[in-house]
């Protein structure tokens, strides 16, 4: 299957993994690239459908977004918000330093 689409290389997988903050062992990169090319080739079958003049569908519901009034109805739930955090202090989330 993968011979149809060779767009994804081991390098692409490495980049996507970094952007997604996923750790991938180097010896898995080629395998995953192959898998992804397979997926893409499968999806590409959709290209056979004639969609001329058909609006792209981004939602299954044909209605505009419901809107809400500008009122304060939420918040004030700090304990809940912080409940799952591994580390907190003085009401803040505490994470490993993100700048030098």
């Amino acid at each position: 299957m993968s011979e149809k689409n060779t767009g994804v290389t081991a390098k692409t997988v490495e980049k996507i993994a970094r952007l997604s903050r996923l750790h991938v062992e180097p010896d898995r990169l080629a395998y995953l690239a192959d898998e992804m090319n397979g997926l893409l080739a499968w999806i590409e079958q959709l290209g056979e459908v004639d969609v001329k003049g058909v609006e792209p569908m981004t939602s299954a519901v044909e209605m505009p977004a419901p809107l809400r009034k500008d009122e304060i109805t939420d918040g004030g739930v700090r304990d809940k918000v912080l409940a799952n955090a591994p580390k907190t202090e003085s009401g803040y989330f505490v994470v490993p330093r993100s700048v030098e």
């Binding site: 809107l67 809400r68 918040g75 700090r78 009401g91 803040y92």
Partner: peptide, 30 residues
């Protein structure tokens, strides 16, 4: 519907939507 006022105590103006808890859905402010 969490407040936007400046200078509040940390994380007191956060809804579960803003904290990205699973399953929470955004609704647009008109």
């Amino acid at each position: 519907g969490a407040a936007t006022e400046y200078g509040a105590e940390p994380n007191t103006q956060v809804s579960l939507v803003d904290a990205a808890m699973p399953g929470m859905l955004p609704v647009v402010n008109e």
